[in-house]
């Protein structure tokens, strides 16, 4: 069992190094937000702890864990999406400015 877990860990870490080493510095902040959101997966452990029926203390700890992990999942994915939405290329910008960009800070004098 343990060896199998080590396998999974090592391969996943290796994959992580391969992929994340190629993320450009441009997106390093979204990357941190994204890995944060994904590490909210500890929610699956929290759910079992909170709903396992192992007494009030364990359930309460589980409840707190579910609350913090859910906060990270919801907040993390939302903020990653918001941030990535801001990264535009020049040509996208021209399109967006002309089309459906409501005046937030696009009060450019023309």
């Amino acid at each position: 069992m343990f060896l199998l877990q080590i396998y999974v860990f090592v391969l996943a870490a290796f994959l992580g190094f391969q992929i994340i080493g190629r993320v450009p510095p441009l997106l390093h902040t979204p990357l941190m937000a994204a890995t944060n959101a994904i590490s909210g997966i500890s929610l699956v452990g929290s759910l079992v702890a909170a709903g396992g029926g192992h007494g009030t203390l364990a359930s309460f700890l589980g409840f707190l864990a579910v609350a913090s992990a859910t906060t990270n999942v919801i907040g993390g994915f939302l903020i990653t999406d918001r941030m990535l939405g801001m990264f535009k290329r020049d040509e996208d910008k021209v399109k967006n400015d002309e089309a459906a960009k409501p005046a937030e800070d696009t009060e450019r004098p023309s």
């Binding site: 929290s46 759910l47 079992v48 909170a50 709903g51 396992g52 029926g53 359930s59 309460f60 589980g62 409840f63 707190l64 864990a65 579910v66 609350a67 913090s68 992990a69 859910t70 906060t71 990270n72 999942v73 919801i74 907040g75 993390g76 994915f77 939302l78 903020i79 918001r82």
Partner: peptide
């Protein structure tokens, strides 16, 4: 759907708190 989960009350509470706290932190 995990069979070790027998009680959903604490879970529901945690999820609600998390969503309420997470939304403003994201948006």
């Amino acid at each position: 759907a995990h069979q070790q989960i027998v009680d959903y009350r604490w879970i529901a509470g945690g999820l609600v708190v998390g969503v309420i706290a997470g939304y403003p932190l994201g948006m």
